Simulated scan of single mutants.
Amino acid sequence: MSDMFLNNFRALVAKYLDEPWLEADGIPLAELDELLAGHNITVPQVLREFLHAVGGCEDLMEAYYYFWDPEELQIEDGYLLFLEDEDEEFTWGFRAEQLAVPDPIIWRRNNATGAWTSEDGTFSEFVFDMFDWVFSEDDDDVDMDVDD
């Protein structure tokens, strides 16, 4: 299967961290496949390429929200869970019946109620929008005072 998303995910390092992408920013495919094999679950192509591209880049994997390491992925409530917010109020996942879709729709669970809500976007759309939001917040915090 060809890489549909890999280069776009690798480009996140340069875009948000102002550094060139390095192999250490990702997880080598052999290692990733070994980690995922223990789950006996199908991981959507987009998540596999995301982890391969930036799964070793802590500055992205833990930028406000926390992407789970490959060995932490699990199916719960009929969803493959892969992300949570810093307060553990919400968890994001894919519907288990959609795991063969290359870039499936994302769902968010309210951990207090257990209710799932569609994000109305695919993983790739969600990730690119999320990083734009997370890293633009830093720009809002800059002191705009100018000395004469």
Rank of each mutant, 00 (worst) to 15 (best):
S2H: 12
D3Y: 06
D3K: 03
M4W: 07
F5I: 09
F9Q: 04
F9D: 00
R10N: 08
L12C: 05
A14K: 15
Y16I: 00
Y16H: 10
P20T: 14
A24W: 13
A24P: 11
D25S: 15
D25H: 15
E31G: 01
D33W: 05
I41Q: 12
Q45G: 04
V46D: 03
R48L: 03
E49V: 00
F50R: 07
A53D: 03
V54T: 13
G55D: 01
G56H: 03
G56A: 05
C57R: 10
D59W: 03
M61C: 08
M61G: 05
Y64F: 11
Y65D: 08
D69Q: 15
E72I: 06
E72K: 14
Y79P: 01
D85A: 03
D87N: 11
E89W: 11
E89A: 14
F90T: 05
F94R: 05
R95L: 06
A96N: 11
P104K: 11
R108Q: 15
R108N: 07
G114W: 01
A115Y: 14
E119T: 13
V127G: 04
V127R: 07
F128Y: 06
D129Q: 14
M130F: 13
M130I: 02
W133A: 07
V134M: 03
D139R: 10
D140S: 15
V146W: 13
V146P: 01
